Amino acid sequence: MKKGLLAGAILLSTLSSVSIAHGSCGDTDLHGYMQDIKSEMRQMSSAVKSGDHDAATEYVDQLIVSFQKSRNTHPHQFEIEGLEGEALAQQTEQYVQLIDSTIKTLQDLNVALVANDKKTIRQLVGEMGKHRKAGHSTFKGSC
């Protein structure tokens, strides 16, 4: 059991670089939110690793707030690619869906942390990794 939790914590710590749609092309609101997410993920990972699920749930709550703020912004990539009209609307919808899906995963993670459901915690941490990968591959532009 402890090996599974440790594996989940290790995976979670790899997510400390989570920054869905994070652009390093200037100091944007989204960049700031993603920096906050990166920090909160590290802190949550440490709390999960140490078995402090109460602290981990507090960090999950902070992550949810940061993702909700991110939802109302646009990735810098949209500007780089000069998206307008229907193309911008489609990419924005895709971005919002990914953010909403990530928030849902975090809400589910909170429930698993409260219930001390190690198997579900591990599964949801894996889902967070998938969200991060999808966000980076789809929305992280290079300047």
Score class of each variant (00 low, 15 high):
6 L>G: 06
6 L>S: 10
7 A>V: 09
7 A>I: 10
7 A>P: 04
7 A>T: 07
7 A>Q: 12
8 G>V: 00
9 A>D: 00
9 A>M: 02
11 L>P: 02
11 L>C: 03
11 L>F: 06
11 L>V: 01
12 L>G: 00
12 L>Q: 00
12 L>F: 04
12 L>A: 00
13 S>V: 01
13 S>H: 05
13 S>K: 08
13 S>N: 08
13 S>R: 08
13 S>Y: 02
14 T>E: 00
14 T>V: 05
14 T>S: 08
14 T>W: 11
15 L>A: 01
15 L>F: 02
15 L>T: 00
15 L>Y: 01
16 S>Y: 00
17 S>M: 11
18 V>L: 11
18 V>W: 03
18 V>T: 05
18 V>R: 06
19 S>K: 09
19 S>I: 02
20 I>A: 05
20 I>V: 06
20 I>Q: 03
20 I>N: 03
21 A>Q: 00
21 A>C: 06
21 A>R: 01
23 G>N: 09
23 G>P: 12
23 G>I: 11
23 G>R: 13
24 S>P: 01
25 C>M: 03
25 C>Q: 02
25 C>G: 01
26 G>N: 04
26 G>T: 07
26 G>A: 12
26 G>V: 15
26 G>H: 10
27 D>K: 15
27 D>I: 15
28 T>G: 03
28 T>M: 05
29 D>G: 08
29 D>F: 14
29 D>V: 14
29 D>Y: 13
30 L>F: 06
31 H>K: 12
31 H>D: 02
32 G>R: 14
32 G>V: 15
32 G>Q: 12
32 G>D: 06
33 Y>P: 02
34 M>E: 06
34 M>K: 13
35 Q>F: 14
35 Q>T: 04
35 Q>E: 10
35 Q>C: 11
36 D>H: 13
36 D>W: 14
37 I>K: 07
37 I>A: 12
37 I>E: 05
37 I>N: 09
37 I>F: 05
37 I>D: 05
39 S>P: 09
39 S>F: 12
39 S>A: 14
39 S>M: 13
39 S>Q: 12
40 E>A: 13
40 E>S: 12
40 E>L: 15
41 M>G: 03
41 M>Y: 04
41 M>Q: 04
42 R>K: 14
42 R>H: 12
42 R>C: 08
44 M>P: 01
45 S>P: 03
45 S>L: 02
45 S>H: 01
46 S>Q: 08
46 S>L: 11
46 S>I: 10
46 S>R: 07
47 A>H: 00
47 A>F: 08
48 V>A: 01
48 V>P: 02
48 V>Y: 01
49 K>L: 03
49 K>D: 04
49 K>T: 06
49 K>C: 01
50 S>W: 13
50 S>L: 10
50 S>V: 06
51 G>N: 10
51 G>W: 11
52 D>N: 15
52 D>S: 11
52 D>F: 14
53 H>K: 15
54 D>M: 10
54 D>T: 14
55 A>H: 12
55 A>Q: 14
55 A>V: 01
55 A>N: 11
56 A>W: 14
56 A>Y: 13
56 A>R: 09
56 A>N: 08
57 T>L: 13
57 T>V: 07
57 T>S: 13
57 T>D: 09
58 E>A: 08
58 E>S: 08
58 E>I: 05
58 E>Y: 08
59 Y>W: 09
60 V>L: 07
60 V>D: 02
60 V>K: 10
61 D>G: 09
61 D>M: 04
62 Q>S: 14
62 Q>T: 12
63 L>F: 04
64 I>N: 02
64 I>D: 03
65 V>S: 07
